[in-house]
């Protein structure tokens, strides 16, 4: 899949772009994730400590932002660059009078790539478009196990990161008002699932090790949905009557 994405990127890079108008769109919303391996890893971490630790969240739907700078073609096709940011995590806790223990994972993904969209239906005011992104994600996961009591403190961290290409495809509904458009956007992101490059633990002799027992993959795949705002950067064309 990775080879196919790179080939597609190269093909798109060779397109001769003749833009009429340019714009910037911002989408803020939610994303959900697969992360099956990271969920299993979180359960494994919970089982390693000799306490009745409760797992609260396992990579739930969380904030997702997408920023796109695009050029509008004569035929209605928009092509541009895209940046997306998403974050989620997992949390487990045990607390009693003497102190508390937390097991957390924080995943952040910074994605850069190219995007394109094309209106299927539209009358100027409204349009329904299909869009697609090809993005390269830098995915970072920070795993923390913290124990805090009055006389004992332990903070162990393990970092893992990877670069993973993926693509997103979906639909967007836009309402256009002069230089601004409002819209709704929803799609599915398919991650190629690169394996994480796993670092070393910050503590040499922790209560419970954070070491992984198997290879972990990024698995960012999931649905994305959000509210979209588009700014047209060029003034609308005017006719001068003498």
């Amino acid at each position: 899949m990775r080879k196919g994405i790179i080939l597609l990127l190269l093909l798109l890079a060779g397109l001769n772009i003749q833009a009429q108008r340019k714009g910037l769109s911002v989408t803020a919303g939610m994303a959900d994730y697969n992360f099956a391996e990271l969920k299993a890893y979180q359960d494994d971490l919970i089982s390693r400590v000799p306490f009745d630790v409760k797992g609260f969240s396992y990579f739930p739907r969380y904030s997702n932002f997408r920023l796109s700078y695009f050029l509008l073609q004569d035929n209605g096709l928009k092509l541009g660059l895209v940046y997306a940011y998403s974050t989620t995590g997992a949390h487990a806790n045990y607390k009693d009078l003497s102190g508390q223990l937390n097991i957390d994972q924080f995943v952040t993904a910074y994605q850069f790539g190219i995007s394109g969209s094309y209106p299927f239906i539209g009358n100027g005011k409204f349009d329904l478009s299909g869009y697609g992104d090809l993005r390269l994600a830098y995915v970072r996961n920070q795993v923390n196990m913290n124990i805090v009591t009055l006389y004992y403190f332990e903070s162990n961290t393990l970092k893992m990161k990877t670069f993973s290409p993926g693509l997103e495809a979906g639909l967007e509904l836009n309402y256009n008002i002069n230089r601004i458009s409002f819209g709704l956007q929803g799609g599915y992101y398919l991650d190629s699932g690169s394996s994480f490059d796993i670092g070393t633990e910050s503590l040499s002799d922790p209560l419970a090790s954070l070491k992984t027992t198997s290879e972990l993959h990024s698995q960012l795949s999931g649905f994305r949905a959000g509210i979209k705002l588009t700014f047209w950067l060029d003034p609308p064309q005017m006719t001068i009557i003498e």
Binding site: D52, V53, K54, F56, S57, Y62, S63, F65, Y85, T87, T88, G89, H91, A92, N93, Y94, K95, D96, Q100, D104, F106, V107, T108
Partner: peptide, 11 residues
């Protein structure tokens, strides 16, 4: 906008 969850399981 970093993911945060501070739920507590009090025993």
């Amino acid at each position: 906008c970093y993911y945060m969850d501070s739920s507590l399981y009090e025993v």
